[in-house]
Design a protein around this nucleic acid. Structure first.
Length: 418
DNA sequence: AATCCACAGGAAGATTAGGATA
DNA sequence: TATCCTAATCTTCCTGTGGATT
C-alpha cells in the first residue's frame, strides 16, 4: 500500500483488487475434495469392508493407521459419504457417524454424542452432564435399535480417548442390539496404540487393519496441483513452487496437510503483498511463518516454571549482548537469573537439577538450542542459544500475568570468566 | 599425565495433581 | 463426598566427564 492512497473505503478497494484465490476453502485442511489422488487403493479397501453394510449385515470393525496428513480422515469421510448415498439409492438403511475423539474424549460424552445423533427432538436429547453413564448407554441402545439398519461409527484419533472402557462398551454393543448393527472404524496415527489396549478390545476392534503409507513428493505434487486448479486463479503461481512445497512436506514424513498449509500460507502472504504470482520467495516466508506460529503456540502453553526459565534466558542474552559479552549462555547463569526472578515474583524456585531437565525440554520443543559443551578447565555446561525471533517470544511471555511485575527487570551485571 | 571445573544426567524416593472408585 | 491409585513432577544424592590448565 502506498502512502498517498486515500484511506476511505479500504474494504471496497480490497474486494475489487484481483486476489489470487478463487476458492479459498479448497486450500483449508477441512476441505474434502471429490477426488482423492493416490488413495484409490485405500478407498477400495475400506469400501470393500463396508459394502457389507449395504447388504444389511455387519461389516468387520476396522482399524486404520497412518501418520498425520496421509488422508485417513479424508478417505473415511469420502467413503462414508458414498456409503450414505448408495444407501439412499438402494433403500438400505445405513447410518454413518463421524466423531473426533480429540474433541469428544470421555466415555460419557462419546456415548452421549452417538445417541444424540439418532435423537432429533431437542427435549429428548441427552444432556452434557448429569446422567449416570449406564443410563446413557441404555438410551443409546434404545435409539440405535429404534433407528435400525447398520450404523458405521468412525472414531477419529481414538488414541486420544481417555480409558479403554468406552471402546470396550462400544465393541460389545452388537450383542445387546436386536434390530440394528454397529461397526466401528478406529483411526489413529499412533502405531503402538493397540499395544496398551485391553486384549478383548484389541481383537474385536482390529478385525481388519489398514495402514496408510505417507505420500511421496510426486504424489504430493498431484494433490497440490488438484487443489490449485480449484482454489487459485490460473497462472497465479510459479512453476517451481509446487515441487518446492512437495519436497519440503515430503521431508516431513509426506504430510499432505503440511504441503497444503505451506502452499496456502504462501498464497496468502503473496496476496497480502499484492504480488501477481506466488513465487519461491513466498514459500520461504511461509515456512518461516509456520515455524514462528508453532513456537508462539508452544510458548503460550508452557507451564509457568518453563516460562520463567525462558524469560531468564531471554534476559541474560539481552544483557550479554548489551555488555558485549561474547559466547552463549550457560546453565549456571540461567539458574541465577531464574532464582532471582522467582524471588521477585514470590514463586517457589526449583532445583538446578530440575532446571537442567526443563532446559532440555525447551530444546526439544525447538524454542531454544542447548548443546552440551566442555570449556575445559572451566567445566562442562550447556551452551544455550535462542532459536530465533526473541522479540516475539518476549511479547508472548508478557501475556502471562506472572511477568507483569517484571516488565522493567534488569539482569544485574556479573563478572564472567572467559 | 594429572588435575579439576561446572555442570550433565542417572537412580531412587518424595510430593503432588488429577482422575477413578467406592 | 471421601479415599484411593497412578502418573507426572520434583528433590536428593550421586557419579561421570571433555578438555584447558598446571
Amino acid at each position: 500500500m502506498s502512502k498517498n492512497t486515500v484511506n476511505s473505503d479500504i474494504f471496497g478497494r480490497m474486494l475489487k483488487s484481483e486476489g489470487l484465490f478463487i476458492n479459498r476453502e479448497a486450500m483449508r485442511p477441512a476441505y474434502t475434495p471429490d477426488i482423492l489422488p493416490h488413495r484409490g487403493r485405500e478407498i477400495n479397501d475400506l469400501a470393500s469392508v463396508l459394502v457389507i453394510a449395504l447388504r444389511g449385515e455387519t461389516p468387520s470393525n476396522v482399524f486404520i493407521y497412518g501418520k498425520t496428513g496421509t488422508g485417513k480422515t479424508a478417505v473415511t469421510k469420502f467413503v462414508g459419504k458414498e456409503l450414505l448415498k448408495k444407501g439412499k439409492e438402494t433403500g438400505k438403511h445405513v447410518n454413518f457417524i463421524y466423531i473426533n475423539c480429540e474433541v469428544v474424549d470421555t466415555q460419557y460424552r462419546l456415548l452421549q454424542n452417538i445417541a444424540n445423533h439418532f435423537i432429533s427432538e431437542w427435549s429428548e436429547r441427552i444432556p452434557f452432564t448429569g446422567w449416570p453413564t449406564d443410563e446413557v448407554y441404555a438410551k443409546l441402545r434404545e435409539a440405535i435399535d429404534k433407528a435400525g439398519g447398520v450404523t458405521v461409527i468412525i472414531l477419529d484419533e481414538v488414541d486420544k480417548l481417555k480409558g479403554d472402557e468406552a471402546l470396550y462398551t462400544l465393541s460389545r454393543i452388537n450383542s445387546n442390539l436386536l434390530n440394528a448393527k454397529v461397526s466401528i472404524v478406529g483411526i489413529s496415527n499412533d502405531l503402538k496404540f493397540t499395544e496398551f489396549l485391553d486384549p478383548r478390545v484389541k481383537s474385536s476392534l482390529g478385525e481388519e487393519n489398514m495402514i496408510f503409507p505417507p505420500y511421496d513428493a510426486g504424489e504430493l505434487q498431484d494433490i497440490l496441483k488438484q487443489r490449485i486448479n480449484i482454489a487459485l486463479r490460473p497462472s497465479s503461481i510459479d512453476d517451481d513452487v509446487v515441487p518446492l512445497c512437495s519436497a519440503l512436506a515430503a521431508q516431513e514424513h509426506g504430510d499432505a496437510r503440511r504441503a497444503l498449509d505451506l502452499l496456502r500460507i504462501s498464497a496468502e502472504l503473496a496476496e497480502r503483498k499484492g504480488a501477481p504470482k506466488i513465487t519461491k520467495k513466498y514459500v520461504k516466508l511461509a515456512q518461516n511463518k509456520i515455524e514462528i506460529d508453532r513456537i508462539i503456540e508452544v510458548i503460550r502453553t508452557l507451564p509457568t516454571q518453563s516460562k520463567l526459565i525462558l524469560f531468564a534466558i531471554l534476559l541474560q542474552e539481552r544483557h550479554n549482548k548489551k555488555a558485549e559479552i561474547a559466547g552463549a549462555i550457560t546453565t549456571g547463569e540461567v539458574y541465577e537469573v531464574y532464582k532471582d526472578l522467582c524471588k521477585k515474583t514470590r514463586t517457589d524456585s526449583l532445583t538446578q537439577r530440575r532446571i537442567t531437565d526443563l532446559i532440555s525440554e525447551l530444546d526439544m520443543l525447538g524454542v531454544i538450542t542447548a548443546r552440551v559443551i566442555s570449556k575445559g578447565r572451566y567445566g562442562r555446561t550447556r551452551e544455550i542459544k535462542m532459536s530465533s525471533s526473541p522479540d516475539e517470544m518476549m511479547t508472548i511471555l508478557q501475556e502471562d500475568d506472572v511477568f507483569k511485575e517484571l516488565a522493567h527487570y534488569k539482569v544485574r551485571g556479573q563478572a564472567r570468566l572467559i
